[in-house]
Structures are given as C-alpha cells and as structure tokens.
Nucleic acid binder design. Structure first.
Lengths: 360, 360
DNA sequence: CTGAAAGCGCTAACAT
DNA sequence: ATGTTAGCGCTTTCAG
C-alpha cells in the first residue's frame, strides 16, 4: 500500500495504442476523428486497446497538427475591488454581502461558458490585471481559436495585433474598427430611460453623474446623461463627480459643502453600491435626502437596503452572443467583423425613491 | 476599405522571427523562456522583430515540446436546473431571482480561477452533462496539467483512469482512495449544528430530510442528520423524502395526508428553495407551519422571503485550495494524495423561525 | 480500409 | 552566447 501512490505516468500515445491493437497510428487517429473511415471491427479493437491502456489523446499534439485547438478564450479581470484573500483558512465573512461576486464580468462569463459547451468548445479563462495584461493576452491568444475580451482590459494597439491573428470579440460599444467585432448594449437608451424616470416621476432637477468614464460604454452613459438633462431643460454637469474611487471623500465633500444634489447617477452598480455605503456612513438618508442609481443589474443591487434602482444588461445573453460571433468568424474567416447591440431594461427599485417591490 | 476585413493570417512562427532578427530559432525561444541565456542586445532585437511581426507563440507547440501545458482544468456542471436558454434575444426576466447563478459550483470556480491566476496558470473550464461526461472528461484531461472535478460528475472508474495520468482533485468527502486528492467540508459537523439549533432553539421534534443522497457529501449529511436525531432521542426517519426532484408532489402529498413535519431539513439550498416555493404555492406558511433549512450558503438563500437558514461552505476558499493541492502534486509527483477538510458555518436566518437579521 | 511518412511550432540538449 | 538538431503526439495526404 502507498507504494505507487502519487505516481503520475507519462501516458500512452497513439503508438502504444496502435501497437496494442496491432494497427498503425493512422488507424488509431482515424478511429477517433473520422470513425467512418475505419471498419467497425477494427474500430472496436482500437477502442478496446485505448481503454485498456487508459489512453488520453493530447490536445496539444492535436492542436499543433490540426491547426486549431477547439477552445475559445475569455480574457477577464483578475483584480476584484472587494476581493478577499482565499489563500488562508476557509473563514467566512460573518455577513458576506456578495459585493465582489458575481459582477458584470462573471455573469457574462457564465453565458460564454454555457454557449461554448453547447457548441463543443472548451473555454479557457485568463485573468488580466492591467499591469500584466499584454503578457496574459499573448499567452491566452496562443492557446485558443478565438478570443473574447472585456473592454478596458487592454489597449487598442495590442488588441489589433491580436485581432490580426485570430477572431476577437470585444465587449464594448462599437467603434469604427474594421477587424474587431463588438457586443454591447444600448447604453444611451438605458440612461435616457433612467433620467426620464428620475426627472419625470421623482421631479429631480439637480442631478450629478458619479464615476470615471474611461471606456466607451461609460462615456456613452455620461454622454447620454448630459443629453437627457439638456433636453429636459435642466442644468448639465460638465464633468462626472469622483473620477477616482474614493467615494467616502466624495460624500464628505458634498456634505460639508452642503452641496448634495437630488440624485447621484452612478456609472455602474458597483459605484452606486459604494456611494450608498458612504452616504449611509455619513448619516445621509437614501433615497430620502438623495436618490442613487446604478447601471448593470448586479445581484448585489437587490441585497442592499435600499434596493438599487438600475438599468439591467442581459449579461448572460451577451456572453452567449460573443461566442456565436466568434464561432461564426472562425468558420467563415472572410466575413466582415460584426457588431451586436442588446437592449437594456430600466429596473426601478427603492434607491430612486420608489416604494419597495415585492418578490420572492 | 473592407478589402482585408476579417482575414485571419496564419501567423508568424519562431522561424519568421528568427529570420527577421537574423538569429536562430533557439535564440528566439530562449529570449522568451530563458532570457538570461541571451545577451541583452540580442534579446531586444528578437523582441522587436517579434513585435513587428505580431508574433504569438503557439501554446500547443510549446506544450507538446515541453510536456506541460501551463493550464489547469475544471470539470463543472453544464446543466443548470433553472437554466434559461440564452440563444434567443436578450430578454430579461422581469424579476430575475438568481436561482440558477451563482450556485455552489460557480462560487468554487471563482476560487479556482483566482488562485490559478495568482500562480500563472490559465484555467480551462469544461461543462459535463452526465450524458457526455466521459467524452468531456477525456477531452479536458488531454489539455491540462491537473484537473479539478466536482463530485457526482463522473463515475469512479473513469476518475481513476484519469487520475493515473495526471493529478486530479475531487471536490467531495474523502474516501479510501490512494491516487485522488479530495477537498471537502465538515458535512457532519454542519448538520449537527443545524439540528441542534432546530431542536434546541425551536423545539422541533418531528424532522424530515429532503433530497436525494446520491453522492458522498449528501449521504454524509443524511447520516449526520440521523445521528443527531438519534442522540436527541427523537424519531429517526429511515429514508429521505422526495429523492426525485418533484417538490410540488412532495408538498401536495404531505399536505393531503396532513403529515407536515415540524421541519424539513433539505440536503442543499437549491432543494430548500424549491421546497419553500412549493410550500408557499400550497399556502403553507414558512416558517410558521414548517421550518425549512438548506445547506451550502448560496446567494439566492438571502434573496428569498423568508431568508434561508443554512450551513455555509467556504466555497471560494475550497476552490483555491483545490488549485494549491493540484499545483503541489504537479510539482511533487511523488507526494501521496492529500485531502483537505474545511469547516462550515451555521447561518441562522428566517426560514427556521428565527427573526429576520439585519444587514446591508 | 489501412499503412507510411511528412510535417505542425516549439523546447532543450548538445555543439560550436 | 548562439546555432543545430532531435523529437513532443497527432493529423492527414498519398500509396497500396
């Protein structure tokens, strides 16, 4: 007992299987890849030999020889804002509030995975950290047949370098690109609906936008925010508040200057959640003294009190679409890049001042 | 315009880079894998050439030549109970209640991913569907250096066949295995604490267990359930109720026979949530007429009313541990298989009859 | 229907 | 410090 424990063999190859079955390696390969080209009896022979030997085909060798890997990649975000360190014991938060999972990227990832599996692709997920993004990008790009990338993960130059080598789909508002497909949502429409609600239903007239607008989607939201205010005849902020992530400071400043607006329209749910925290720490009533809204539709938005009014994105559906576009481009390399736009849904809950909804 | 749109080049190789830089392919390889073996000036030369050419190393070729892929695999579950079909438009549930995400496997997966990235491994995720589990298993096993598998996904024979070829860690209660490492939680301890609470605090004396016990963890829970009742001097059910998944029928039966127990102890949160639904559909008050408890600590348990009393597992930490064990076995193939047990945490909320907790 | 043989792109001895 | 070369395991013509 325990003698061979932990031993990991090198593993049998096609040669071993071929020898055992008394056939050539080509026949072994055909048995698995093009079964019709092999007589049934031979096929069974080979399969039996493979089973007895515990044969597991090397995907690397197959990929190298065949020119494709059969896997799709997703470049996600490694760094999570409220992330904890799992390397220690399994201690649980006494009151885990799922602020860091699932986020936008996780919900999209789920859609990507489901759709890949439906199509028989494996999914390779890599996490980039802005610091090492190009290394990670290159690494994963070398492993897959097509790659999905979140907006803001990497810079445009890198993006195009990779897109020249394999199909790439970016999750962001479309831009005048020729070689990159994009999947995104109607940021402008969602923002418009949100502002209409705030202004029309709650009579807000002093609204501010919170959060940095460093990528296409975010700036589209800010732009739509301004446009909506303009057409409502309300004052239009030139800049978003708190481009940095220090929401405590933002709130402290607003309170001390007695400059709290009617509504704080946040660029994402994550920002909104943090802002609500800061507000409540400062004893400001939400939505009594100030309405706060988000954008995305994270699960966490329903776990807080007040529940977050937001604009929901069909994240899983977007992930699935990304995969379909990718596969389409893999199978038809000559087709032009294709971009898809999804609708969003204004979801009114408590943080704008509406009464609590019921659900179970 | 549009002329070369969508064209995917074959991609430059080490040969192209070597030629461009005026060096040999070995130098190119060394530049990336063992930089110290190449003079700085040469290195820069090679890097420049690579950049200009848009060189992306083939992970397949590297893996084949090097004998390792640099990726870890996770065999997850493809089929989701309340899963929807994302292939259509992006229509959102009017009242999405996250019953199908994130589940246990998703939270563990998150831990796996985070830890892999920390260690520079890519993660390959495959989804198995019991129907095709061995195909998927073999496929992913051929792609990675180590594999994490959820309990109940595949049968033991397959498991050992794969474990003979590469390090495998299974997320389940440990068993008398020699070549497979396991990571799991103290199912018995958690169940005991739960029953103690139900009996001690709420005075339950007629408890039933709900859900199938088809894997080691589940049956450990049932076993502990029985043991706890026994030592409390209460009647001990011989079998779980509703091994099948038809909770409507279970409730209908219980109600019609007027045989509702004090408490329904469910094998998982998923089952508990479904049972609560069925109970409420039948106008049975939870926890008024019957207490219901779960096991796992899913997010969804906090979104329902009444909030679910459950036993939480440190899922992300378990995922991280799986990766550490895997890497350890990859680096030290001679070490024996290692199993880890994590503590759980009784989390009392409303569905057992306790007053609502506050959190934000 | 089956076998022989030529790579796929890269790594790592071994030479120089 | 750099070049030569022999595979890694498999797919896939091309012959037989």
């Amino acid at each position: 007992v325990g003698k061979e424990v932990g031993r990991v063999a090198k593993g049998p190859t096609v040669y071993d299987v071929a020898e055992r079955a008394g056939v050539s390696i080509a026949t072994v390969s055909f048995t698995f890849r093009q079964p019709t080209k092999v007589r049934e009896s031979t096929r069974e022979l080979v399969k039996a030999a493979a089973r007895e030997l515990g044969y597991i085909p090397s995907a690397n060798a197959r990929g190298l020889a065949g020119g494709r890997t059969g896997a799709l990649g997703l470049l996600s975000l490694a760094h999570r804002p409220a992330g904890r360190d799992w390397s220690s014991d399994g201690a649980l938060d006494p009151d885990d509030n799922c602020r860091s999972f699932p986020l936008y990227v996780d919900e999209v990832q789920r859609g990507v995975e489901a759709e890949c599996w439906r199509h028989g692709y494996a999914v390779m997920v890599a996490g980039s950290d802005t610091s090492n993004s190009d290394v990670v990008l290159t690494d994963i790009a070398g492993r897959v047949d097509g790659l999905a990338i979140f907006s803001g993960t990497i810079d445009e130059a890198e993006l195009h370098r990779v897109a020249a080598r394999l199909p790439v789909v970016v999750l962001s508002e479309s831009r005048p690109d020729d070689d990159v497909s994009r999947v995104s949502v109607d940021n402008a429409g969602g923002m418009r609906a949100l502002i209409d609600h705030l202004v029309g239903t709650h009579g807000s007239h002093d609204l501010q936008f919170v959060g940095s607008v460093h990528d296409a989607d975010r700036s589209a939201r800010f732009k739509a925010f301004r446009a909506a205010l303009r057409s409502a005849g309300l004052p239009v902020p030139r800049q978003p508040l708190a481009t940095a992530a220090d929401h405590q400071a933002l709130v402290a400043d607003l309170v001390s200057r007695n400059a709290l607006p009617d509504a704080l329209v946040c660029v994402t749910d994550e920002v909104a959640l943090a802002v609500i925290d800061a507000l409540q720490d400062a004893k400001v009533d939400v939505p009594g003294q100030v309405a706060v809204t988000g954008f995305d539709g994270l699960v966490a938005g329903r776990l807080v009190s007040p529940q977050l009014t937001t604009v929901r994105q069909p994240m899983a559906a977007m992930g699935a679409m990304v995969v379909r576009v990718l596969i389409d481009r893999i199978e038809h390399p000559d087709k032009p890049a294709r971009s898809q736009l999804f609708p969003v849904q204004l979801t009114v809950r408590e943080s704008c001042g509406c009464p609590p909804a019921r659900f179970r």
